[in-house]
Design a protein around this nucleic acid. Structure first.
Lengths: 210, 210
DNA sequence: GAAGTTGTGTACCGAGCGGTACTGATCCGA
DNA sequence: TCGGATCAGTACCGCTCGGTACACAACTTC
């Protein structure tokens, strides 16, 4: 059964994409409906009909972001060794937060770490989604312990927290204008430090370039 | 020569302190004049007479924050060895971002990493002040190289960027509700990693507790 | 006490906020 | 060709935003 009534005059995915970038650059509260509709090329009633409200639009933007901009994290976790997991995560993160065709930094931080009391839910939502990613990494490290890829006395949660802290700091640096090459150096330091501290075996093939 | 005219009915420092906490919790754009004046216990005209504008108030709050909440950073840089500098910085940072009598996290991040276009200067101002701190740390590391406390081939700027990235990530974690003890574990991992990678000598007295 | 100076409180400004009612326009199936 | 359904666009809602005019209160100096 095809659509009934007048068809939409714009592409919902494309409009969401534009909104995503506005939220990314200006944060949730810093992005006004006027900014959003201007970037999306539609009028307010169309936005509300298609997305419900500003907050729903934001959550859909974050979901889209997680799917297409955070794919590297799932790819990283799927690596076969702990070292490769972390190496992939840190290096891909550098690329992700400095993509020339995207705003600098990371939406889940730029979106808003602090909000007015009425929008407090937005900051909490972003924090929860970041911590969910961290938990996935901690689970991956726990598996590595059970596979003897990490020592039995390793602390998976703390190691994951360390790696995520670095990526978040890198995202903030990127948003401040720090270059990809500079962040790459930092990522290699973090990776080498992780390898030295975690007890994860570093592969014989030296693929790093600090 | 004493004051002329009616004396002020409130303490400017105390009012600035209250404003500081509101900005810290809600960010620059998330803190409305109503929120601020309510917390400061004064009316808007008094605020404008004493502080000029919302943005000036914010900058004064950040200056106050740098002076009294970031003092640990100056203390850290003044340590005699690179290891002690980094150990102090990372450990004191954990305490600073989880002080029970303060909002969680760090004002220079919570204040706003992304803003609307008209308030873009606020985010830039915060980014610049963070990078200034990083440069001071890089200078300290450069001195350590010249003192042979770090290897001649060490990259002071990259090492400083790594340490600051960790502290920023820790601040974001704290704002998300992560506990002091959890952050302490992460700080020890970062410290041990830094020691292993930088070539900084670790003191014989083992004062760490990962 | 009067004059001059400065802070306080109320009441208000224009502008922009997020969100919506309503009129037409545009499609479908019959 | 007409009725039903859906979307687009204008024009507007109440509200809050940051910021201020103005009358009054409180203080010092003469």
């Amino acid at each position: 059964m095809p659509v009934r009534g007048r068809p939409r005059g714009f592409d919902v995915d494309e409009a969401l994409e534009r909104a995503l970038e506005v939220f990314w650059r200006q944060g949730y509260e810093g992005a006004s409906m006027t900014d959003l509709t201007a970037a999306m090329g539609i009028n307010k009633p169309s936005l509300y009909a298609a997305f419900g409200s500003k907050e729903e639009l934001f959550r859909k933007a974050v979901a889209r972001y997680a799917e297409q901009d955070m794919g590297y994290a799932r790819h990283a976790i799927a690596q076969t060794t702990t070292y490769e997991v972390v190496a992939t995560l840190l290096r891909e993160n550098v690329l992700a937060v400095t993509r020339p065709d995207r705003p600098a930094g990371c939406l889940s931080i730029q979106g808003g770490t602090a909000c007015s009391s009425e929008n407090g839910g937005v900051a909490e939502f972003l924090a929860a989604s970041r911590l969910a990613g961290e938990r996935a990494l901690a689970d991956r490290f726990a598996r590595a312990v059970s596979e003897s890829d990490l020592p039995a006395d390793a602390n998976p949660a703390a190691l994951a927290r360390f790696v995520m802290s670095v990526t978040e700091g890198q995202a903030i640096h990127a948003a401040a204008g720090v270059s990809r090459e500079e962040l790459r150096q930092t990522a290699e330091i973090a990776l080498a430090g992780f390898a030295a501290v975690s007890g994860a075996r570093r592969p014989a093939t030296a693929d790093n370039a600090a």
